[in-house]
Design a protein around this nucleic acid. Structure first.
Length: 89
DNA sequence: CAATAATAGTCCC
DNA sequence: GGGACTATTATTG
């Protein structure tokens, strides 16, 4: 666990329910606008895939990118969270 | 030092 | 809008 990874986790954890952000966005929040590679690494190498909403972190506004548990599951989770948000609101 | 990875931006059709 | 190509960064052996 490195300090950079901690920053990444903290940033990802504060993403609102049903909201999706890009890896670039997370990288900027960590102070490294061009560290999205390391951001993906931090999420992929750690078991935090189930502890942090890393499924809300997508590639760009067009595609969802990948997911350790399956891109299909990630997409499904995002869609599901949108429904949840709609329900609780 | 080299390899790796869950990307982003740009060019072209 | 979508496919192909390149640039970029932190971590690990």
């Amino acid at each position: 666990m490195t300090d950079f990874e901690k920053k990444v986790l903290r940033v990802v954890l504060k993403i609102p329910l049903g909201e999706v952000r890009t890896y670039k966005w997370v990288a900027q929040k960590c102070g490294r606008p061009r560290a999205w590679r390391a951001v993906a690494n931090a999420l992929a190498k750690n078991p935090f895939t189930l502890l942090v909403p890393c499924h809300r972190v997508v590639k760009s506004s067009k595609k969802y990118g990948g997911y350790a548990l399956g891109a299909a599951l990630k997409k499904d989770l995002i869609n599901l969270e949108k429904k949840i948000r709609d329900v609780i609101e």
